[in-house]
């Protein structure tokens, strides 16, 4: 690692002020991506602003038909939360499948969605459920939040404080995990929400995206049969040592059908 300075603010306002005063500073959440990145010298921040001492940013609560998860809430806490299990079991199952036990003890929902790794699990739930990302200064709809490869709508120095998930009628997430990393080669999040059916795909493209033709088919009939034979074009999908674009396109159909089958 290159050398850096380290601060551990005790309020969101202090964290935002530090980031505003130093454009080369970086936020440290759980560190499950950032620390390996630093170790490989792929980033050289002037300082890390560790959000680990902001207890107000971690926690899970339900307000009516909304599940609210603090940005610094760890995957393990979401996975074993009774509130999440009762309100949104698909999200608990998703969190339980991220990385491995040790990673789930450090990694956070805020860190995952802000990093927007194209193979991360959480972005599919945020987009698939039409969640709202709350920051220190505003609220951002999921449809506007993920803007591209490792990119989001966040401004410089903006901090995510919580994610608000409107509870769906039913939802499921199925992924084809890379056997080594457990990242999604492809993952599909299917939800029947108050504002219609949403299908979000991770792992396949340069970032999480919605599959419009699958949403239309499931709106007409929420059954596994409805998505049988549906095709998503391989044109803009990822091709790498793990899977070709064509294979990923095929997996989208297979996993969407499996996800629907678990809740139809």
């Amino acid at each position: 690692m290159y050398a850096f300075d380290y601060t551990r603010p005790t309020s969101v306002a202090d964290a935002v002020a530090t980031l505003a005063s130093d454009s080369d500073a970086t936020v440290l959440a759980g560190g499950m991506t950032l620390i390996p990145t630093l170790k490989q010298r792929l980033a050289q921040p002037s300082q890390l602003v560790d959000l680990g001492a902001l207890p107000g940013l971690a926690g899970i609560r339900r307000e009516g038909d909304t599940l609210i998860i603090g940005a610094m809430t760890r995957h393990a806490d979401v996975a074993r939360s009774e509130i999440v299990a009762a309100a949104l079991p698909a999200l608990a199952a998703l969190a339980d499948g991220i990385g491995d036990a040790q990673v789930r003890h450090r990694g956070t929902i805020g860190g995952s969605i802000v990093n927007h790794d194209p193979a991360a699990d959480y972005p599919s739930a945020v987009l698939g459920l039409g969640a709202t990302v709350v920051t220190d200064r505003r609220q951002i709809a999921a449809d506007d939040f993920f803007t591209g490869l490792f990119a989001t709508a966040l401004e410089e120095g903006e901090i995510v404080t919580e994610v608000r998930f409107p509870l769906p009628k039913r939802a499921a997430y199925v992924k084809f995990p890379n056997p080594a990393s457990r990242y999604a080669v492809v993952g599909v999040f299917v939800a029947e929400t108050g504002s219609g059916v949403r299908v979000a795909v991770t792992g396949a493209g340069p970032g999480v995206f919605r599959a419009g033709n699958f949403e239309a088919a499931l709106t007409a009939s929420f059954t596994p049969k409805a998505v049988e034979g549906l095709v998503w074009s391989a044109d803009d999908l990822n091709s790498d040592m793990h899977a070709s674009a064509g294979y990923r396109a095929h997996l989208i159909g297979v996993l969407a059908k499996r996800a629907v089958a678990t809740i139809a």
Partner: peptide, 9 residues
């Protein structure tokens, strides 16, 4: 909680 001590400062 079990964590990987090579990935925490």
């Amino acid at each position: 909680d079990s964590v990987k001590s090579c990935t925490i400062l």
